[in-house]
């Protein structure tokens, strides 16, 4: 649905984006992550046809942004971080104006506006001046305009910033609900939000892509050298740590929480090629231990992000 090929964007001597390429499939919710100044907003602005790329090609729904800009703009919904609105207009008037600009025909305009008002929970404030609304409601008004005309692609720049926790949950649910009929690319600073909502993560750093994949695959990629396991072992004798260290390929064993005099947790780091569950079962059988639990420890998105942006592990 979104195809970005070798895109660069320069502002004078500054390169905001350098040879960026990625794809987002139909129905995906992709998260665009990166530090401040990484190039997230520039990337979203290029996709929204606000700025042209200096180099490279972008296609949305099979249409080239350079040659079919107006047609592409009919297919996208764009939510800006500041949620700009006209303060002197009422919510309904604002949405009506935006629907006219979007080209929503008169016959379906009223229905389309009612739908987005309902979807964004704006029913109570539909006749109030936008300038008098709270920040949370303004965010919703901003979000509601992006949904007008049933866009095929939604570009959301920090959609939950400034909202209270309840509103954040509502907006996240709304975005998740839209995924069945819309492809969504959202830029966010909140990594837990991306891990909850997105099935694909694109990490930008200093204008370049350092990773673009699902969280699971990124995890696997980072664990090419070593995998971390958590295990709980019941044993009547001692020297469990020593025995575990004897398994070929085990790098490090750490004693964790002791549940009872016989039951303890252990953290084992092993080389990626080692089939640790099998080796562990074998060892437990030989030593008459009871293996109560064994599970690989996945990294959180925060850990993946820090790992990638600081250690430059996956840079080409």
């Amino acid at each position: 649905m979104i195809e970005v090929t070798s895109v660069s964007r320069h502002f004078g001597s500054i390169s905001a984006l350098k040879d960026v390429s990625f794809q987002v499939g139909k129905g995906d919710i992709a998260g665009l992550l990166g530090r401040n100044g990484a190039g997230k907003t520039t990337m979203i602005r290029l996709l929204a046809c606000f700025l042209p790329p200096s180099k490279g090609q972008i296609k949305i729904a099979g249409l080239n942004l350079e040659t079919d800009s107006l047609a592409v703009r009919r297919k996208i919904g764009y939510f800006l971080e500041k949620a700009p609105v006209y303060p002197e207009m009422r919510v309904v008037e604002f949405l009506e104006f935006m629907a006219k600009l979007k080209g929503v025909s008169r016959a379906v305009r009223k229905k389309a506006i009612s739908e987005v008002i309902e979807a964004c929970g704006l029913g109570e404030v539909r006749h109030r001046m936008v300038g008098n609304l709270s920040k949370g409601y303004r965010q919703r008004v901003g979000l509601s305009q992006s949904l007008l005309g049933n866009p095929e692609v939604l570009l959301l720049d920090e959609p939950t910033i400034g909202l209270d926790p309840e509103q954040i949950i509502e907006v996240r649910d709304l975005i998740k609900g839209l995924a069945s009929r819309t492809t969504i690319l959202l830029s966010t600073h909140i990594l837990s939000e991306a891990s909850q909502m997105c099935n694909k993560i694109i990490i930008l750093d200093k204008g370049s892509i350092i990773a673009a994949d699902t969280i699971q695959r990124l995890n696997a990629l980072l664990h090419q050298e070593a995998i971390l396991f958590s295990t709980q072992i019941e044993s009547s004798g001692g020297q469990v740590v020593e025995r575990l260290n004897e398994i070929p390929g085990v790098i490090r064993v750490q004693l964790g929480k002791t549940v009872s005099p016989c039951i303890s947790n252990y953290l084992i780091e092993a080389a990626a090629h080692v089939d640790l569950p099998v080796e562990l079962c074998d060892l437990a059988f030989k030593n008459r231990w009871t293996l109560r639990e064994i599970r690989p420890l996945n990294m959180s998105l925060e850990e993946i992000f820090v790992e990638l942006t600081t250690k430059e592990k996956l840079r080409p």
């Binding site: 606000f50 703009r73 800006l80 006209y86 600009l101 080209g103």
Partner: peptide, 14 residues
Amino acid sequence: KLGTFELIATYPVR
């Protein structure tokens, strides 16, 4: 100033 130009410029309007 409001940022609304960026918004309407991404609508299908010349």
